[in-house]
């Protein structure tokens, strides 16, 4: 394809091609600080393409393609090319990756131990992880956390954080503007702005960590913490995994071990500050 780049996020090497220059330029800026190995073959390919040649210029709309596609995905306007790239990358990982168990979860780490936050979009898992990652935690990822079936360790997938709606202002107030991507207003997912993870989080992205805490956050309502059993955590995590079934017994063994070794809680919180307080409190109890 005419415009292209390569990006390594955690263990996954991406190759991204585009019919247009702007999405690639935007990706290159967001991922400039990531390690580069131009000789490494790509695990996953993403294509951003025009359905008809003239649609490159005339009302350009970006179709998302690659190794895996979603049949009914609508194209996006070129101004949202960065979102198209992000969706394409997520899709290839969610459907194609088999080396690790993939959890739809954010994660942060400290002292070689991880807190894994699993929830639907809107649960605030991304925002909590992003904010914790600006403190004394290492951001492991805002969207996917990988679990190694052999060791049971968690591995980072620190793509550029996808901040949505209210989270944008919350993070803008705390970080160097140079670490933020362009504001993508009015996308199908609301307003989006990307945050480049801190350099130390990117530098440490290959370091495995032991899961210490499994949290299932819910945004809204009074602060609440509820311990949940191994069985319930197991069920919730199978629902949060994109490749559990494809992994067969390796996935079963990894998940069984994870829920047995890791205390799990549902948490509710009315705002980010109280959410962070709850995480810190449970962390202190878990690692004591």
């Amino acid at each position: 394809m005419r415009h292209r780049t390569r990006i390594a996020v955690g263990p996954v090497q991406f190759r991204i091609g585009s019919d247009w220059a702007p999405p690639i330029a935007a990706l290159k800026r967001l991922y400039a600080g990531y390690p580069r190995d131009t000789d490494r073959p790509a695990d996953a390919t993403v294509r951003l393409f025009a359905a008809r040649p003239w649609r490159r210029w005339l009302r350009p709309s970006v179709h998302i393609g690659g190794d895996f596609i979603v049949p009914d995905a609508l194209p996006l306007p070129l101004s949202m090319g960065l979102l198209a790239a992000e969706m394409g990358m997520n899709l290839q990982v969610a459907l194609g990756w088999r080396r690790h168990m993939l959890l739809h979860a954010s994660a942060v780490a400290k002292d070689g131990r991880a807190v894994i936050l699993s929830g639907e979009s809107g649960s605030g898992k991304s925002t909590l992880a992003a904010l914790l990652g600006e403190g004394d935690w290492r951001l492991m990822g805002d969207e996917f956390t990988l679990v190694d079936p052999g060791s049971g360790d968690a591995l980072a997938f620190p793509r550029a954080v996808s901040l949505k709606n209210e989270a944008i202002a919350e993070v803008e107030a705390r970080v160097d503007p140079a670490r933020l991507g362009p504001l993508l207003a009015g996308t199908p997912k609301g307003d989006i702005r990307h945050l480049i993870p801190r350099a130390d989080a990117i530098a440490a992205m290959h370091e495995p960590v032991r899961p210490a805490l499994l949290l299932f956050p819910r945004f809204g309502g009074e602060p609440a913490i509820e311990r949940i059993g191994e069985g319930e955590a197991f069920v919730r995590l199978t629902e949060a995994s994109t490749n559990y079934i494809a992994l067969g017994e390796a996935g079963f063994a990894a998940l069984t071990r994870l829920v047995r070794d890791t205390p799990a809680f549902t948490i509710s919180y009315p705002d980010s500050a109280s959410g962070m307080t709850i995480v810190e409190q449970l962390w202190t109890e878990a690692v004591r």
Partner: peptide
């Protein structure tokens, strides 16, 4: 890039998405 260069051959392998619904 894995794309079909013959429009008649665009028989993409649709994956019934295990991401959208496990």
């Amino acid at each position: 890039w894995g794309g079909a260069t013959d429009p008649l051959l665009q028989q993409a392998f649709y994956i019934r998405s295990h991401w959208l619904r496990m």
